[in-house]
Design a protein around this nucleic acid. Sequence first.
DNA 1: ACAATATTTAGATGATTAGCTAATCATCTA
DNA 2: TAGATGATTAGCTAATCATCTAAATATTGT
Lengths: 102, 102
Amino acid sequence: MNKVFKALSDPTRRRVLQLLRAGPMAAGELADHFPVSKPTMSAHFGVLRDAGLVEAEKNGRTVIYRLKMSVLEEALMGFAQAFGLHIELDEATALAGDGKDT
Amino acid sequence: MNKVFKALSDPTRRRVLQLLRAGPMAAGELADHFPVSKPTMSAHFGVLRDAGLVEAEKNGRTVIYRLKMSVLEEALMGFAQAFGLHIELDEATALAGDGKDT
DNA sequence: ACAATATTTAGATGATTAGCTAATCATCTA
DNA sequence: TAGATGATTAGCTAATCATCTAAATATTGT
């Protein structure tokens, strides 16, 4: 869980996760949303991968990143519960619900 | 909100917040729970203060730290909502509810 | 006033991090 | 087989971070 919080501590990475909420996206397309170099973004992807927050799937010469919502949810839940907060998935608002993230 | 996530990215600081959940505590007593020097802990307190997650009140020669639950809650809520997650305070489990945290 | 106690500040150090450019690897297509 | 494309790795720098010891500040009690 520490890796998840470390990963979430950078605003660029948090925004990557948000972009992935709408659905899987290629590394390059993802990188185009940020004002930093592609190698820098690749490093960010590595941190997110290492934390288990995203999954990479190679598709030809592109790499598709997909949000692993369940990992984010569980980390957040574990932490929130320790403070008497309760987290639940709001099905109405949930996008990217193709079930492939577990 | 970035400062909050930065503050939460360190396990020592997360545990400080958890300890404070049971109620306000002096800096020294708090520090006794960790295997690092007091100046190091003082720096951690500074980060938490800067993020607005705790409040310091000087009482004689001790400094009492208090968790500002509402700040933690709002940061977590703001983030969770962006992912279709819903956070709410679980009144049953809520400790430290002396209302002095806002 | 002095000594003890509680905490923070100052200053240094080693580790990690985010960023860059240049180079490499893998894949596709002409 | 070349060239082009998408992404990562290598190697570097500058900045931030967690930690330490020693010193300073503030407060209390004798």
